[in-house]
């Protein structure tokens, strides 16, 4: 098959990745990595490099749409990036080391197990469709971590405020570390911190996660670029496809019910966890 057809197919895969990424807040990279490794025989390190490009394009697309719709909480997103950015830099640096040391399989299995735990936690919260107002901590009050948005599905204005900012910072550092190591958006963990720890509505969590994912990916890309893991030719179809998919996803999200978003998020989480464990154990 000609090189051009490979790139066209890759762009189509990136459309799907961008759509899933924007809809669930996971960034889309987790779709690109296994497809590149399994179907295109691309080395894992190069797949990680292509994945961060997907994430950057995805986050810029959905980030702008969600900011325009005021679904994104700029303050909370910016604040939590203090934890995700150093996590991502350390994670990417670890990947450079691990690729040379051939020690990634055990970490992939561990990641899969963690994600399954998060998926189960997500299932337990599925019935919790309505958002309840939490009690903000001192930092949350001082920095103004509260807000509101209009839910077009429920046709009402939802107000929220953040609690447990320390816990969220800890989860976000872990999210950055995982994102940097595996080249994924780590939106799974980011949404967990925003939704589970800060107690933000799922739509605000998803939009803010998308907003943050680009900055996290930017932090790790500096390391991955220097290591030669970002292939500039692969980047073009991946970025274009991810942008198209993310655009469609960002227009679909505001009209969806919270329950639908949460179920989609959980299903994606379980699927990728199983796949990660199988891959880590040396499966197909």
């Amino acid at each position: 098959m000609d090189l051009v057809w490979y790139l066209v197919i890759l762009a189509a895969v990136a459309v799907a990745a961008g759509f899933v990424g924007s809809l669930t807040g996971i960034g889309g990279g987790i779709v690109i990595i296994p497809v590149l490794v399994i179907f295109f025989n691309v080395p894992l390190a190069v797949a990680i490099g292509a994945s961060v490009i997907t994430i950057l394009a995805n986050s810029a697309t959905t980030g702008s749409a969600y900011i325009r719709d005021h679904l994104t909480d700029l303050r909370i997103g910016m604040f939590l990036e203090i934890a995700t950015v150093p996590g991502a830099i350390i994670g990417a640096a670890l990947t450079v080391y691990l690729v040379h040391a051939n020690l990634q399989d055990a970490l992939i299995v561990a990641l899969g197990v963690i994600l399954i735990v998060l998926a189960i936690a997500g299932l337990r919260r599925i019935r919790d469709d309505a958002h309840t107002l939490s009690v903000p901590d001192r930092r949350s009050r001082r920095l103004g971590f509260f807000g509101s948005y209009h839910d077009s599905q429920l046709n009402e204005t939802i107000t929220y405020q953040a609690e447990n900012t320390n816990r969220a910072l800890g989860i976000m550092f872990g999210a950055g570390l995982v994102a940097g190591m595996f080249g994924i958006g780590s939106g799974v963990l980011k949404v967990t911190a925003l939704d589970g720890a800060l107690k933000l509505p799922i739509k605000v969590s998803t939009a803010t996660s998308n907003f943050m994912i680009g900055v996290t990916a930017c932090a790790s890309t500096g390391v991955l670029l220097a290591a030669g893991y970002v292939n500039a030719v692969l980047a073009a179809p991946v970025a274009i496809g991810a942008t198209v998919g993310a655009l469609v996803g960002s227009y679909v999200l505001p009209g969806m019910r919270n329950r639908t978003v949460r179920i989609a998020f959980t299903l994606v989480l379980i699927g990728l966890s199983i796949e990660l464990i199988i891959r880590g154990l040396g499966g197909p």
Binding site: F79, A88, I89, L143, T221, G222, V223, A226, A227
Partner: peptide, 28 residues
């Protein structure tokens, strides 16, 4: 005039510059 949030954003920017311009090339 939100001094604390401006410092938060500046910290993120500095961390990004360190990652992209210092740590990346250092590991090269």
């Amino acid at each position: 005039r939100e001094r604390e949030m401006a410092i938060v954003a500046m910290t993120v920017a500095i961390l990004l510059f360190v990652g992209v311009l210092v740590i990346g090339p250092f590991l090269r």
